[in-house]
Write a protein that binds this DNA or RNA. Structure first.
Lengths: 346, 346
DNA sequence: CTGAAAGCGCTTACAG
DNA sequence: CTGAAAGCGCTTACAG
């Protein structure tokens, strides 16, 4: 790489000092218009670009936020990252993106290196397997702004942006029951992860509210990927579970179960009502799932970034608050058109 | 934010100087094992983390690469970013992600700010509308390592990682012809964008090779999104084009055309053979497209990152080279299983 | 309106 | 084995 132009290079050409150049470039009132003009001309002539690393060291502002997501090559994550990126950008921040790959150890390392890079705040979606909170306690002690999104750890003193998993699950499962389903199996997430626990709670509450006692045999815990859905459905079969509906904790899990069904007995696809959280990212073309809770990824990302930047600027305080982003309950019709379900009608 | 511990804080506790601490922490042979041990203990005790900004300023290495993509919330882009992220990570680099949103002006701004951030190299996929190459000439002059991926600008002196668009399009369209299609329309990309031009060339070559003269009326140029596909198909209808096959430049374009067909006359979906570059990201469940050229997003990302890091380390030289990542030609069968098409058989 | 001094937290090169 | 000096490119606070 070629040596880059510095303030001093401009200063020498103009017989000024670097301080004046620095000021002129930043439109400091100290400097006369005539000088500013000359300085800027020379700057663009020699292709000067400020060294943000140096600037950060003095100003202790990097205009950078660190993002940790469990996955990126999935529709939902990509949407969230897009939302974060766009909003951060609009406020002059840039994002450093890291991926934990659902690995708590990697998650911790990424957080450490982001902190070392002096990011001004962190946006993290916790990996499924994370149980150790030491790093988060340290972040808290250091008063480094952090906002959880989608998957959070409660009671650590951070704000989180999430959807109302419990409420949305309850409503959705309630809708299945009202439309005639009685034997509703659930491919659930792990209980120690917020989304797993909450969605299962909503499921159980809906059942109880309609006088159905939840049967633990109809619930299979697992992680949130396609494989898990595939295995989960096979396990339900092995247990000889009869069902008229299946509620999957995520879209990929549902996808896995769909594949398993096709393998086992394709007629199940018509007989079993499919409900899942999240969609494929391509609307109105995938035959599955019939019912789904739309997770507004971009909106979650945008809101999380907004909260974080407000916290960085001091206008919001961290405080164990859960900010809910609204979801919609959608139905894929037989002609593949998607419509919102009206709960009052069913 | 609380004040962070510095080398001096550790030095004071141990009655040493910051230089020794710096060396001890980095396992410099100058320092005795006993001292190293004491230093590291104190460091972890007070939660010291090196300030990478300061380190970068002295070492002029940031271990950071800048990424510019036109979109992120799309399956293919997300795959590429995942590939970049993972590989860069494995070599100790972190990525700063920016999104141009297909806006050349934003693309330029992002590149400038990444350079100002002192990223050690750039990975960029050019936006559709980019025609101005000034910033790239400057990057070249400054000898800042840059590798294009997926969408590139030729002859600027940079290496690019791409798929063999022309060859893959030719093979795929050739396959359609061999299986009986004669009237193949094409929803193309713009001619000034590499993927648009190349794919169209492959299409035309395949036709000619089979004695069919390409009809410009059967080709609609546009951008690469769903809307463009929708409008493109409507335009083909307006032109009264008859077709037995439709080749879409990207998956979203094909998706748009699919939606337009359903609206116009659903029976077309069965009558018109659908071919596209790229897939939905969810395998074996989407009924469309029947034939597709799989774009190995992760592999493109990985390879581009590898080339860039090699260039940063000096083992690879920039030189207008096109590195091809192999594609596969796939068919979605009626049972939604996906199989690779064997060209020798058809 | 312009500049000299000090410092951000670290590393490199040189002394002892 | 340990340390004093200089400097990375910039900004802040203070003089003149």
């Amino acid at each position: 790489m070629k040596k880059r132009a510095t303030l001093n290079d401009i200063a020498q050409r103009l017989n000024l000092t670097k301080v004046s150049i620095s000021k002129a470039l930043r439109d400091h009132p100290d400097i006369s218009e005539a000088t500013k003009k000359r300085v800027k001309e020379v700057a663009s002539e020699i292709g000067y670009r400020p060294n943000l690393i140096a600037r950060s060291l003095t100003s202790s502002k990097t205009q950078t936020i660190g993002v940790v997501v469990p996955k990126i090559a999935h529709s939902f994550s990509a949407q969230v990252v897009a939302g974060i990126q766009r909003y951060a950008n609009s406020r002059g921040f840039v994002i450093v993106l890291t991926v934990s790959d659902e690995n708590p150890e990697l998650e911790r390392k990424h957080i450490e290196s982001l902190v070392s890079m002096q990011v001004e705040g962190l946006l993290v979606s916790v990996s499924m397997a994370t149980r150790e909170t030491e790093i988060y306690n340290w972040i808290r002690e250091m008063q480094i702004p952090l906002v959880f999104f989608d998957r959070y750890i409660p009671d650590l003193g951070f704000n989180s942006v999430v959807i109302d998993d419990r409420g949305a699950a309850k409503e959705a499962v309630g809708h299945l029951i009202k439309s005639g389903c009685r034997k509703i199996a659930h491919l659930a997430g792990y209980n120690h992860v917020s989304i797993g626990r909450q969605r299962r709670q909503g499921y159980e509450e809906a059942l109880r509210e309609h006088g159905i006692e939840p049967d633990p045999r109809m619930v299979i815990e697992g992680d949130v990927g396609e494989d898990s859905g595939y295995r989960g459905f096979k396990e339900l079969q092995a247990r000889n579970i009869e069902m008229d509906a299946l509620f999957s904790v995520t879209f990929p899990v549902g996808l896995g179960s769909y594949v398993a069904m096709r393998e086992t007995d394709p007629s199940m696809i018509d007989r079993i009502e499919m409900l899942a959280f999240g969609d494929s990212g391509i609307r109105g073309i995938v035959p599955y799932p019939h019912f789904y809770v739309e997770q507004p990824g971009k909106e979650i990302g945008r809101k999380a970034a907004e909260l974080l930047l407000d916290e960085i600027e001091g206008s919001v305080k961290p405080e164990n608050q859960l900010v809910y982003v609204p979801t919609r309950f959608l139905e894929t019709n037989s002609d593949f058109q998607v419509t919102e379900v009206d709960f009052n009608k069913s």
